[in-house]
Nucleic acid binder design. Structure first.
Lengths: 341, 341
DNA sequence: GTGAAAGCGCTAACAT
DNA sequence: ATGTTAGCGCTTTCAC
């Protein structure tokens, strides 16, 4: 039988309340008593039952996830994961609420953040738009004592703020490595497509790509970045225009969303004229394109893992619990046709 | 305020005990009462507090992990993860015990399994050795009602038995894809190294490799598999012998452990004569080799994820709870120098 | 069949 | 500074 605070109290010769005070480091206990209780705890190997403690405290948690609206497949998956997670943790008395926010819109994000009543929310996770207004709203929220994590795209707003997502520089480096090796010693020109150079993740991916291209694959010539605003049609049009004025493109790296546009364009090209392509996020579209050989590799981040990780981090912050850091590292996943799930 | 069984009882006009009986589908309740309770549950949106339920049931869990002994870095990491996990879940009244078992030894594994008293253990996770004796012991254990999962290397012993680990055929396919692309149109002969063709994971990796090599990279010529028993020295010796009698090896796929032996040998080779290499499991050694350019890619499985997944599955089985299947899928991770964490 | 009441291990008033 | 006691939400005897 595992020891309880009653056992500890008896062993230390004090009351339950004193044991509780010591365990929770509450004031009002003599130093000597503290020592006796701690000795008893050590002797018995006592470990406090978290469930019982939380039950007694009748704590309820409410966490809010701010996720961009719009057709972006990855964001929709992230939202679905957050909602599913909410169902899963409900029996443990924690509520997860998903709030939609217009994408690429710092003002809207700031407004949504300011609308949160600090007393009523135990923590906030949000997909960042790196604008000054948003940063300010985050600072206010954190100042009010609400734990905050940024998801997928970071907004560094405080020295100790946490980011849940991949290392986007590493992702860009990986893309360059793959394209560099796949293209071989001949190299070639490479088209770079982003959603917007105003979101941090795309900027960082580009940086990583250039680093490796320059240092290790000098025969790789990246063209200036074109922007597709994470929209399929716009991306396709911009890319088509680029290919028209820049013949002989050998490689393609889509750092943003809008993969449907890229894939449609690739499919329309004669096989001999198709660049080798690397894209982000495994979705039904990119998976099909991998299988069809239209895309050679996909760099991926696991939305479910990110949602769970964000919740674990917020929960730990809310209850002052420790964290298994290794579990929270989001992987830069690489999928070829053969290991795609 | 979230509803409790008291609210449900009041709403349905019955007692707490009846509500409890209905919620837990225990017999001895009239059909009409059941309906009234269920209606009240639905009306109030009642969700049972799991922590309180477990507390009241005063349930303790004890799970046993059977992990091969020996110097295999990956297995040591798996053990460390299992132990760390044990610390983490102790406050929730679940104990995780790690038991060492000699590797590649079906008899020893069977003996360890038979030594488990079915009544005293809530679930067992084990790294499989696919021998008949082990399979029989697993059947006995499962028949005694103990939930079982196989880890890393499967032992199919029952139609509904669960396996926690990567799809090793996909891993082998991925290795072939990478080597095929990296070597380019010239192709070349490829050395295949395994620990033992008696463990299922290595056999499956080989199968996957051959599939892709034949179908997609006909210029890739895999040599017959050599075995190193997951031992660095033995692996190095066997590989050196192979290279001596088979000059001009262009690629290398180590499906097993013993990476230290492979890496030492590669380092000793003149740079021009080094095959491009793909290995399994990211460890300090393989990470360093990636950075040094001695290995081009590592196929990895996350030991921490596997340990946590095994525990979640066993726990769910023990308490009859549902599972988030997506969370339990172990990824075939691919690491190049640039995305290695 | 159904209900009342006593806990599970811990916390939080409220005494002392 | 320390102890007593009444719960937290649920399960489980044991009566009725």
């Amino acid at each position: 039988m595992r020891p309880t605070i009653r056992d500890v109290a008896r062993e230390a010769g004090v009351s339950l309340a004193s044991v509780d005070r010591v365990l929770n480091r509450r004031p009002g206990v003599r130093a000597g008593t503290i020592l006796r209780v701690e000795a008893a705890v050590a002797r018995l190997g006592f470990v406090r039952d978290l469930a019982a403690a939380n039950l007694s405290r009748r704590r309820d948690y409410r966490f809010v996830f701010l996720i961009p609206t719009g057709p972006n497949t990855f964001m929709r998956e992230l939202e679905a994961e957050a909602r599913a997670l909410g169902e899963q943790v409900r029996p443990a008395r924690v509520a997860v609420e998903v709030v939609g926010v217009p994408p690429f819109d710092g003002e809207a994000l700031a407004a949504a953040l300011d609308a949160l009543a600090p007393g009523e929310v135990s923590g906030v996770a949000l997909v960042g738009t790196d604008a000054a207004v948003a940063r300010d709203a985050l600072v206010r929220l954190a100042a009010a004592g609400v734990p905050v994590v940024t998801l997928v795209s970071d907004v560094p707003f405080a020295p100790r703020s946490r980011y849940v997502g991949i290392d986007n520089v590493a992702a860009g480096r990986t893309a360059a490595s793959l394209l560099g090796r796949f293209l071989g010693p001949r190299g070639g020109t490479v088209a770079l497509v982003a959603g917007s150079m105003l979101v941090r993740d795309h900027v960082e991916r580009r940086m990583g790509f250039e680093q490796v291209a320059r240092a290790e694959f000098p025969r790789l010539s990246p063209l200036p970045v074109i922007e597709g605003r994470d929209d399929a049609a716009a991306t396709r049009a911009a890319l088509a225009a680029l290919m028209a004025r820049e013949p002989g493109i050998a490689g393609l790296y889509n750092m943003g969303a809008g993969n449907r546009g890229v894939i449609d364009l690739l499919r329309a090209l004669p096989e001999s004229g198709r660049p080798l392509a690397v894209a982000h996020e495994l979705t039904p579209h990119t998976r099909a394109a991998l299988r069809a050989g239209l895309i050679q590799a996909v760099i991926h981040q696991d939305a479910g893992h990110e949602a769970r990780s964000a919740l674990r981090i917020l929960r730990a912050a809310a209850e002052g619990a420790p964290l298994n850091e290794a579990q929270e590292r989001i992987r830069v996943e690489v999928y070829l046709r053969d290991n795609a799930p």
